[in-house]
Amino acid sequence: PQLADQKTLARQIYEAYLKNFNMNKAKARTILTGKTSNPPFVVHDMETLQLAEQTLVAKMVGSAGALKDREAEVRIFHCCQCTSVETVTELTEFAKSVPGFSSLDLNDQVTLLKYGVYEALFAMLASSMNKDGLLVAYGSGFITREFLKSLRRPFSDMMEPKFQFAMKFNALELDDSDLALFVAAIICCGDRPGLVNVSHIEVMQESIVRVLQLHLLANHPDDTFLFPKLLQKLADLRQLVTEHAQLVQEIKKTEDTSLHPLLQEIYRDMY
């Protein structure tokens, strides 16, 4: 009976993942490996960026027109924020579908999302990346790593650490069923600062982590160390988010750009 419960939990979390996220690894890999009839439009310089903005981004971000006279770095930063807000919204819906999450203390739900969404976001972002670039605009565009590196500082420092993480993370060859449990484990984490009912969350976390361990053993029988490797990735993601939050604070201080209110809430008093 216990095994049946664990399988049910794994299935519920995987179904919530497929239902709530617009992009997933299977979709992204199909596009990145050229197995679609519509290959993504490649953004690799200022000219192709402008072309993409006139077509792909205009569809995605209605307010992009207000930024048309701003420099490319600011426009790209705005697009990153829009994608982040959308993913945070998806992650919130996903979290609510994880069994037990919605019955947690509401303050604790807020805390778990505040600290978990960026770690989850960067873990999932790896699915849309290869060594050369990143899928954008729902997979209709591909922005090259070199172009992102060529932007002026501090904007050029934004994505390169995510690519470096993604290359190592993608080497683990997780699929969406693994990622669904990994993302749930990131969110249901008992050691976030300020949690009220830690024991309640730890019970949830233990069952998700146990299911993740069993799932990895079944899904990757040749990689017996995959589970401890993934636990290490949790620590790497925390570091990645800390550095990202510092960079965003620097951009906010030194650049004339606005930060979306939802992202402001998340970054405020974070670390």
């Binding site: 971000v61 807000v85 919130t92 303050n107 807020v110 505040k114 979306h260 809430e265």
Partner: peptide, 21 residues
Amino acid sequence: LKEKHKILHRLLQNSTSPVEL
């Protein structure tokens, strides 16, 4: 905490209200 995270709180309580991009 809920007061400092009004949008997150709203997202948690009401899935139908969109977040202005």
